[in-house]
């Protein structure tokens, strides 16, 4: 059954279609949230849940029913960004502990050492970056998205995305003292 058919059923109120869409796209949404947030399970679950909830609530606004995956992915990116901003605000107000990403748990043990080292450096640096820069950089360097895809997921123009990614790369190079 294609996504478009499931979306049509879900619009009619079929609960089983909601669940089918959730199960079909869970790995995409959980994956995005996991990589953007740095793997904290509770937050990842909450973001994934919120993303699907918003998607189901606004199903009528989805123009191309077949592009549900892309759509729910961009909602997940927005939810993750909102979460990161809220956490950052809480930390600024002294209400939360400093962000620490457990790269030991985040990066799979089967990752080749050079790639693992690269990812460790990236995740050690993103904590200090503005949320939009962090998101753009992770979408580029971990998700492997093109500039166009990032622009679509973040609802930004191509040129803004390029600037954000470039700023992230520069900040990363500065923080780790490596080559840009």
């Amino acid at each position: 059954m294609a996504d478009a058919d499931l979306v049509a059923q879900a619009r009619e109120g079929a609960g089983w279609a909601h669940e089918a869409l959730y199960r079909r796209h869970a790995s995409l949404v959980f994956g995005l949230a996991h990589r953007l947030l740095g793997g904290r399970e509770h937050e990842v679950d909450d973001v994934a849940q919120e993303a699907f909830l918003q998607a189901f609530e606004k199903l009528d606004k989805l123009r191309d029913a077949q592009s549900f995956a892309k759509w729910v992915g961009s909602i997940a990116v927005r939810c993750a960004q909102r979460r990161l901003r809220r956490e950052r605000l809480r930390r600024r107000l002294g209400l939360g502990p400093a962000e620490s990403i457990d790269t030991e748990r985040l990066i799979a043990p089967t990752t080749p050492p050079d790639v693992a080292a690269e990812l460790r450096r990236l995740y050690a640096a993103v904590g200090a970056m503005p949320v939009q820069v962090r998101t753009a950089l992770i979408l580029r360097r971990v998700e492997g998205m093109s500039v166009d895809e990032i622009a679509e997921h973040m609802s930004l123009s191509r040129s803004t995305v390029k600037r954000r990614v470039a700023r992230g790369e520069a900040q990363l190079a500065k923080l780790i003292g490596g080559a840009p």
Binding site: F30, H34, V142, E143
Partner: peptide, 8 residues
């Protein structure tokens, strides 16, 4: 595309 290395 390092998704496989940072997967939940």
């Amino acid at each position: 595309d390092n998704r496989a290395h940072v997967a939940p």
